[in-house]
Amino acid sequence: MSIYSFFPSGGEMYWGLLVALYFFYTGLSAGIMLITSLGGVFHLNGLERIGKVGAAMALSLLAVAPVHLILDLEKPWKFITLFGHFQFLSAMSWGAYILILYALALVFYTYYLFKDNKVNARKFGIAAFILALAVEGYTGFLMGNIQAHALWNTPLMPVIFLFSGLASGTALFILGYSLVEKLRNAPQADRYAGIALLSNWLKWFVLVDGALMVIYFIILWYGHADQYAAGYYLLHQDSLSFVWLENVVGLLIPFLILIYRPLASRLSAQILASLLLVFGTLVMRINLVIGGQKLPLFGDRLVNYTLTSGDVGIAVVLALVAVVLMVVLIKALAFEPKKIISSQGKEVVS
């Protein structure tokens, strides 16, 4: 029996690229913070060296993340209102406070790391670590709480966000850290020590991430009518993006690289796996935010999404700002000053 809708709603999607990128950047920042603070803050062997680069990267990414969301508001100039009217039941309201506290903790953590004040760095590192967990969790709740969209409405969402944040954060850190170590001509053994450990963990994060995606899909498939339709949509209408780009290129291939011993020990293979993982997580965020709104609540037309040049421009500019910030912060904070012995035998710093 065919059904035809007259006067279709034909609605436009309200959340688009900028919201997806906000989730992407916050996930990366919190993921990097969680991983790189393990050495300095929790004294995990082999990871002490990476704290400063990690803090600089997490801070740079966090600096641009909320700008996406603010510019996506209809009244960007009124974003400060978020801090005047706390709504207990709103994940977004919680998020505003969690994000500002996370930012403050991260700034102080980075500052004390730079000052080599280990006691204070640890205090703020612990706070930033807990708040990074909250950042990953709240973004998941923000979507998972929404009953209107079957693709979002799952209790798995906070866990999915946590593990995809951990995986992509670790992957981006491996990329950044290997570059930094190369630039500062660190001895090969030193350079490799942290990365080897992280890439070993990375495969487990990817495994959990992949397992969560499989569970998520099974729940959709055996769920109620809207959930089944959402699963069907992912498999049939969005298969290039969901199946191939997000899960095969973005999860399965990196996982295979990381578990295949002859490849797993090579830095170039780890970098390739990391690149694919970061790409896959970006695709995942876009699939989730935009794909999640594709199915209409009424009528018989998929909901449109129009990518505007303005949004693309903002995304590109903010990505460049993040990279520049990262370079500046890493250079300022993470490079050890060169020690030179002067002609008088005194140690000076260049």
Binding site: S9, W15, E74, K75, K78, L142, A148
Partner: peptide, 15 residues
């Protein structure tokens, strides 16, 4: 007071 975050639009099951 509305800042236009569109969260309510996403959350309304009745479009």
């Amino acid at each position: 007071r509305c800042i236009g975050c569109k969260y309510c639009i996403a959350a309304c099951p009745y479009d």
